[in-house]
Write a protein that binds this DNA or RNA. Structure first.
Lengths: 233, 233
DNA sequence: TATTATGAATGATATAAAACAATAATATCT
DNA sequence: AGATATTATTGTTTTATATCATTCATAATA
């Protein structure tokens, strides 16, 4: 579905303040980035990128919410992140094998802005600050992946679920009280457990007074306890 | 222990052909890289980098073998790679928080060459090809981490051990017949299982005629079968 | 409003893999 | 070479977690 142009998104110049990476660029460089740029609105559930297809664009969501996930064996997904506006993605394939290495799909109706990777490459060769910032961006993803590896391989379910709740609260909903717009299945995909286990442990947390739970509505009552659970194995 | 200078390693100019990243550099850029560069020999078991300390250097092994691993909870390690000569490392911290995010220790006596990160940064700003190559290097690590995440979270022990055997054969020993210089404990750290499980499954593979096993000596008899095991969950 | 889908909750059972324990085989040191 | 430490093997038990099965609740649709 095509999006009507609005005065908030006519060109990169007008929305560059939204992403730290773009604020490093000159007008001329922004003009390059803006060339062939397009924006598309996705309905809930639709794929924004599909793992395995050609990676031709660096993408940024300007509105809505999406999930980034690895497609594993037997339709089992591992969710990497929930993506909110101004977070840049496109992944490691952009500079290696020109394939997307994960899928991204819309959790709510989502507008996404597509910037051609050729233009990104042009600018990165013109602007060393931008090149360094991209390298930093890539490195930060590397650090996150290390944390994920340790969390998923060395913590058991309670710790992993605590990690998810803290992530949702701190990084996504910016509140200790939030209304989930993801399913138990998806909570399981974030913490590598079945939906049944996710349900069960949420209930346990409620019984232990750590959270207040009303299906989709979650209230973190004891954040220190969650942090302690997160630290245990 | 300091290493005597030899005619094979007086400066980066003389060993630049060893690493694809260095072949992109001009003499002047190599001279910058070579400034304050030093080489140290580590004994078996010694730390080359220690997770959590300041990351000040990009490092390359010129001789020997080392292991790169994440230190997790309760002294439980997760080995990321075995490092052999000319593989560059230093990790995601070099461009983010200036901390090493993993440890590297010598499996055999190992010589390592330390290049100041300030010099790397200087050169990356001078040479867009090098900048792009570093970004590619970082991205490739990202791809490997995705594969690792899926392998460790979605495969069970037989599949994970098959992955390790194939990795050792293809990437490290370059033969289907090799003499391990790592312990069962370390095989466990590569595949996220206990040393007892590693022993047991190696034995099972032997009984199934997939490998020939004599403690440290391993012979892959049925590589297709290992690949098939690797694909299953 | 009745009727399907879809998601959530809960219980019973099965199983992969860790933890524990003990012995056997190597390697290292004196 | 003998003594000690490290590593490998093997068996038994325990536990975390998946799987299966069913009911309940909520949302979408006719």
């Amino acid at each position: 579905m095509l999006k009507r142009r609005t005065d908030t998104c006519i060109s990169c110049e007008t929305c560059n303040e939204r992403s730290p990476l773009f604020s490093l660029l000159s007008s001329e460089e922004l003009r390059i980035m803006n060339t062939n740029r397009f924006e598309v609105v996705f309905n809930t559930g639709e794929n924004i990128v599909k793992q395995g297809t050609s990676s031709t664009h660096m993408i940024m969501i300007t509105n809505g919410m999406a999930k980034m996930y690895l497609e594993g064996f037997d339709k089992k997904n591992l969710m990497l992140e929930i993506i909110t506006p101004w977070k840049l993605f496109g992944g490691p394939g952009l500079f290696t094998d020109y394939r997307y290495h994960y899928s991204v799909s819309a959790i709510t109706e989502t507008s996404a802005c597509f910037i051609s990777i050729d233009n990104v490459r042009k600018v990165l060769r013109l602007n060393p600050d931008f090149a360094e910032a991209l390298l930093k961006h890539c490195s930060q993803n590397g650090v996150s992946n290390f944390q994920r590896l340790i969390s998923l391989t060395q913590k058991q379910m309670h710790g992993r679920l605590a990690d998810v709740l803290l992530y949702l609260s701190e990084k996504i909903y910016h509140s200790e009280h939030f209304n989930l717009n993801i399913t138990r299945q998806e909570i399981g995909e974030m913490s590598n457990m079945t939906k049944e286990s996710a349900t069960r442990i949420l209930k346990e947390f409620e019984l232990a007074g750590i959270i207040k739970l009303d299906t989709k509505e979650i209230n973190l009552l004891d954040v220190p306890k969650l942090k302690q659970l997160s630290l245990h194995g």
